[in-house]
């Protein structure tokens, strides 16, 4: 028999992780927000036994993924979800035990170590969602040049983040 579900604590503890997980599955911020809400409402409809934080988080990700599947099915966009087997476990490893908060904070700090052009390129890519040819035009680079620039910048950030996480920053 399940214990009473403290939905408020559950939402507080896991909403960021589920939102980020859905963003990683390709949702827009708005869609991720709606589906995160639907995930917790689903859990309220079908309470479950909470054995540990890790198993609770895993179950919520499964529910969230399934809500996304149902949404994509309605939209006729199932192709976007091909080859996602094992993604929940890999996300658990990537997000660690803070729902990815530590990684994002470390990333924001590491961004300060990028060169101006690297920062601009990634800003145009991830904040403005510009296509590569537009970024190349804005920076006066070739398409190949901007591709290399962004790959180097991303690698730099990744290494910086992993260092910070290892050192507990």
């Amino acid at each position: 028999m399940e214990q009473g579900l403290d939905i408020e604590s559950l939402v507080r503890a896991h909403q960021a992780d589920i939102w980020r997980f859905l963003r990683a599955l390709g949702c827009s911020a708005h869609e991720a927000e709606d589906l995160t809400q639907e995930t917790f409402l689903e859990v309220m409809r079908r309470p479950f036994e909470q054995r540990s934080e890790a198993s609770t988080a895993a179950y919520l990700r499964l529910v969230a993924k399934h809500r996304l599947f149902m949404e994509r099915r309605k939209q006729g966009r199932m192709k976007e979800l091909e080859a996602l087997e094992g993604i929940e476990e890999q996300w658990a490893e990537f997000a660690r035990d803070d729902g990815g908060e530590g990684r994002v904070e470390a990333l924001k700090q590491c961004m300060q170590g990028l060169e101006e052009r690297e920062l601009r390129a990634l800003d145009m890519r991830y904040r403005l969602n510009l296509p590569r040819e537009e970024i190349a035009r804005a920076l006066g680079l070739s398409d190949g040049g901007v591709k290399n620039l962004m790959e180097r910048a991303r690698d730099k950030l990744k290494q910086c983040v992993e260092r910070k996480l290892r050192n507990g920053n």
Partner: peptide
């Protein structure tokens, strides 16, 4: 997804 969150 992490880059998108950090930059946006």
């Amino acid at each position: 997804a992490a880059f998108s969150e950090a930059f946006s």
